[in-house]
Amino acid sequence: MSVVANNVITPPNGQHWLVRFCYSFLGGLLSVALWAIIGHMLFSRPGYEQFSGFLPGPAARALARLFLDSRFWLSAAASLSRVVVGLSVAFALGLPAGVLIGYYRRLSLTTDLSVQFLRMVSPLAWMPVALLIFKSFESAIDFLITMATIWPIILTTAAGVSRVNPQWINMARDQGARDRQVLTKIVVPACVPHILTSLRLALGVAWIVLVPAEFLGVSSGLGYLINDARDTMEYDRLMAVVIAIGILGFFLDGAVRLAMKRLKWYGDART
C-alpha cells in the first residue's frame, strides 16, 4: 500500500499557504498563552480581582458579545468614516504636493526642512489647536488624522516621482509630450506603486492616531468605546475593543496589500 502525499506544488520562493497559515496560527496561539500567563501573574494577586476581565477568557466572551452588538458596528463605522474623511483630505492635499515636490527640484529644496520638521511633531500635539480652530469635535478629529497622515503621503509620493525612470520622460518628450502630459501620462502612473505604499503607511498611522483622537469629546467611535468601558469598569469589554481595533486594522492593511499585489507591473518591471 502506498501513501500518496498531498501533492501540492510549493512556489519557488516561500512556503505553501497552508504551511504559512500553520506558522501564523502557532504564533498567535503562543501570543495568547503569553497574554494568559502574564495576566494571571498580574491579576491573581489579592486586591486585583476586578481586573480579571483583561484575561483571554473573559475578553474572548466579551468580543463575541461585541460582534453581536449593533452599537459596536455603529462605532466602528463612525471611526472608519473619520479615517476615510481624514485620509481623503490628506490625499487631496498631499498627492499634488508630493508630485510637485518630487518633480521640481527647487520646490523640494524649499520645502524639505519644513516637511521634515512637521513630520516629527506628534499629531496629537495639535489637539488643543484643533479644538481652537474647529467648533465640532468631529472636524477636530478629521483634522488630527489629516495632520498625522499627510507627511508620509507627501514624502513617499515625492520619492516616487523623483525616481521615475528619466528615459521614460525622454521617450515621452521625443514622442511629442508636453510638460502636462509628461506629468499625467508618465510621472503619475509611474508613481502608483509609491502612492499605494503611502496609502498603506498613512492608513497605519491614521488607525493609530484615531483612538486617542476619539478620546476628545465625541460619543461614538472605537476610541470612545474604550473610554466608556474604562469608566464603567467593564475591563473584558475594554480588552475586546482593543482586540477588535487590531482585527479591523489588520483587514484594512490587508485590503491595500491586496491592491498592491494586483498591480502586475509592481516591483519587477522590464523598462
Binding site: 525612470n165 528615459q167 521614460w168 521617450m171 502612473p189 509611474a190 502608483v192 507591473w265 518591471a269 522590464r270
Partner: peptide
Amino acid sequence: RSITMHFQEPTLLPW
C-alpha cells in the same frame, strides 16, 4: 514630429 528616437533600452511603460 518628423524625428523619432529609439533609445538604448526599450523604455516601455510597464503599466
